[in-house]
Design a protein around this nucleic acid. Structure first.
Lengths: 355, 355
DNA sequence: GTGAAAGCGCTAACAG
DNA sequence: CTGTTAGCGCTTTCAC
C-alpha cells in the first residue's frame, strides 16, 4: 500500500524549513552534537535534568530549541519499556455518556493532566463481547501504562485479566464485584439522594416516591438507600418504581407511581434523564410540576438546565472526580504494588424550579 | 518516581500464566525460535505474509497463537517510521460537540475503523492558543500518521504547518480559508436549509424568518443561503437574526425577530440548540409552537427529540460523514501526494411536532 | 522463499 | 556530573 520511503516523502515539500537541518527530524544525536555533549546527557536533560550541571542543561535546552527537536515517542517507549499512554475505556452500553457533556469534561481533564508529562490519552470503546476481548488483549499486552474505566460494567473476565498482569486501573464509579481489588472514585450516592429527599421534605411534601436506577448497579442501590434513610423507612414501605436510566423508563415509572399512589406530591428520580421522562408523564396526567408534584433529579446534567421547568437536582463533582482518578492512576503507575485506593466525593443540591 | 525494574514487576504475580514462557512478554524472537524460522520471516508473516510459503506461514501463525504473541507497537513504529495512530482533534471552543451524542458516534466509528488494521485513535483537545501550538508541535513531530479535525476553526497557523509537512489531514466540515488545500467531508448545508424552509411553506406558513449561525462560518453562511434560495429572496429582504449556535443566542434572536416581525408564523433555526432557546422565547411571548409559529431546527440532535414539542429538524448523516472521513484519511496516508478530496453528503428532513 | 544483519531513536546502567 | 555502551523489538534491505 505504502509506496516508497515514507521517511523521505514526509519532507518532500521543497520549502526551506528555516532550520538548517536538512530533511529528517532532528534526533537526540543531533542535539548532542549541536550542544557539544553526549547523547546520555541530552537524555538526562529531557528526562527531568537530574544530575546535570545547570550550564550544561542550558546549552542542551538551547540546542533543543534551536533545532526544533521533539522526542520520538516510539523510541522512548521501546527503550524505557513504558508506552507513554493511558487508555480511557468506555463500554458501548454506556454510550449515553457521550451524550453527556460531562463525558467531554472527563476527556478534557484526562488529556490535560496526562499532557503535563507528555503522556497521551487513548479513548477506546468496547462495543461487544468480542471487542471487549480484543481490548483486554490490547491492555494486557502492555500497550498502555494504565487505564481508566468510565462506568465499569460487569466485565468480570476483563478485570480479572487486568488484575492478573497488575495493570494500573482506576474506575469511575464502583466496580461491582471488584470494589475491594480495584481502585475507584465515586460520589456519595446515598448522601446525595438523602439531600434530594430532604429538599422535598423542606418544601412540605409528605407523599414522596422515588424512581430508582437499575438495582443491580451500585449507584442505583445507593440512591435508593439514601431515599429510604432520609424518610426513615425501609424498602417494604417505600413508594418506588425501578427505571433503567433512560428517559422512557422514567416516563413509564412515573405513570406506574401515579396509578399506585395517586396522592403523590413529591418525587425523587435517580437521574436527570429519567426525571425528564417522569415530568412529561406527570404533565400528561394533568399534574403540574412543581405545584402538584415537586421533582428532584440527580446528576446536574446540562439537559436538566434546559428543560421546562429547570430541574432541581444533585450535582456531581465530575471535574474533581476526574482529577482524583488521574491522581490515583499516577500513584499506581509509580508503584504497582500500592493501593487499591478508594475515593468518595460529596455531592451538592442545585435548586432550580422543579422543587 | 518509578522504583525497580518495571519490566520485571509487571509480571510479579506468581500465578502460572498457562504459557510456558516465563516472565516477559513473548517477542518476535521467541516466535521465530518456536516456529523454527528466522525473525525476518515472522515479521513478513505479521505484515501480510507476502513472499512466504503457505506452510511456513501456517507454522508461524501457530507459534503466534501458542505463545500468545502480540506485536510491540513501539518497536514496530520505531523500525517502520510509522506511528500506528491517528489523532482526532477537537478544539475547546467546540466543547458543545461533547454534549452531542454525535460526537460519541464519531469517536466510535473512528476507533472501530482504525482498529481494523491495528491503528489507534488519539482523542486530543486544544483549549487555547498555547495548547494549539503544543498540539501542532506534536502533530508535525510525526507522532501520528494522520489527523481528523472535528469542526475546523480559523487555526490558520496550525493548518499552515500541517500542510507544510504534508501530514494527512481531513476535516469534518469545510475548513474556511483552506477549502482548496485540505481534504474535508461536509453535509450539504444549503440544500438542507432549503428543505427546512420548504417544510414551513408546505405547512402554509408565509411569514418565515430565520435565526442563522455565525456568518463567519461556512455552515452559518450556507444555511442562510438555503433559506434565501427556498424563499426566492435576497439577503436584503430576509427576516433574519444572527446567533452563535448557543441556546442563549437562539433565545435572544427569537425575541428580536418577534419584535421586528410581529406577524411571524414560521421560523427556521440553523441549529437545534438555538431552536430550543427560540422555542422558549416564543412561549414566553405567548406564542404557541407549532400552532402560532412553526419551528424547524437543524442537526437532529438527541435533545431535539426530548424537548417539548419534539423538534422538526434536518438530520445530518454523521455516521457516513465519519466513515468518509476515515476512508479519505486512509487514501491520504497511503499516498500523501493524492487529494485533496472533498465529500458533500445529503441531509434529510425529520418531521416531528414543532412544524 | 528465507536468513542475516543493519539500524530506527532513545534510556539506563556503568564507569569514571 | 558526564561519556560510553548495551540493548529495547521490530522492519527492511541484501544476499543467497
Amino acid at each position: 500500500m505504502i509506496e516508497g520511503s515514507i521517511g523521505t516523502k514526509l519532507a518532500s515539500p521543497p520549502e526551506a524549513e528555516g532550520i538548517a537541518e536538512g530533511i529528517r527530524r532532528p534526533t537526540i544525536e543531533d542535539v548532542a552534537r549541536y550542544a557539544g555533549v553526549s547523547r546520555g546527557t541530552v537524555s538526562r536533560v529531557l528526562n527531568g535534568g537530574q544530575h546535570v550541571h545547570p550550564a550544561t542543561m542550558e546549552k542542551v535546552l538551547h540546542a533543543v530549541d534551536e533545532l526544533g527537536y521533539s522526542v520520538n515517542q516510539a523510541a522512548r517507549n521501546l527503550a524505557a519499556g513504558r508506552t507513554g499512554s493511558v487508555a480511557f475505556v468506555i463500554s458501548e452500553r454506556h454510550t449515553h455518556l457521550f451524550g453527556d457533556p460531562n463525558f467531554g469534561l472527563f476527556v478534557r481533564v484526562f488529556s490535560r493532566e496526562l499532557r503535563r508529562d507528555g503522556r497521551h490519552l487513548l479513548v477506546t470503546t468496547a462495543a461487544d463481547y468480542k471487542e471487549e476481548h480484543f481490548l483486554a488483549d490490547y491492555l494486557v499486552a502492555g500497550h498502555v501504562d494504565g487505564a481508566i474505566f468510565g462506568l465499569p460494567r460487569a466485565g468480570e473476565k476483563l478485570f480479572e485479566r487486568l488484575l492478573r498482569v497488575g495493570l494500573p486501573v482506576v474506575t469511575l464509579g464502583r466496580p461491582l464485584g471488584y470494589e475491594e481489588q480495584l481502585s475507584w472514585v465515586a460520589v456519595d450516592d446515598k448522601a446525595g439522594a438523602s439531600k434530594a429527599v430532604e429538599r422535598l421534605l423542606s418544601r412540605g411534601r409528605r407523599q414522596i416516591a422515588t424512581i430508582t436506577g437499575p438495582l443491580n448497579t451500585s449507584s442505583g442501590r445507593e440512591r435508593l438507600e439514601g431515599y429510604l434513610a432520609a424518610l426513615g423507612i425501609d424498602r417494604a414501605s417505600a413508594h418506588m418504581a425501578e427505571g433503567d436510566w433512560t428517559l422512557e423508563s422514567g416516563h413509564r415509572a412515573a405513570r406506574k407511581l401515579l396509578k399506585d399512589y395517586p396522592d403523590l406530591d413529591g418525587l425523587f428520580v435517580a437521574s436527570d434523564l429519567m426525571a425528564m421522562g417522569a415530568v412529561t408523564a406527570l404533565r400528561e396526567a394533568g399534574r403540574g410540576v412543581p405545584d402538584d408534584i415537586a421533582v428532584v433529579g440527580f446528576d446536574d446534567s446540562v439537559a436538566a438546565r434546559m428543560v421546562d421547568p429547570p430541574l432541581t437536582t444533585i450535582h456531581q463533582p465530575f471535574e474533581r472526580l476526574a482529577l482524583e482518578a488521574v491522581r490515583i492512576l499516577y500513584e499506581l503507575m509509580a508503584n504497582r504494588a500500592s493501593g487499591p485506593y478508594h475515593v468518595i466525593l460529596p455531592t451538592r443540591l442545585v435548586q432550580r424550579r422543579s422543587a
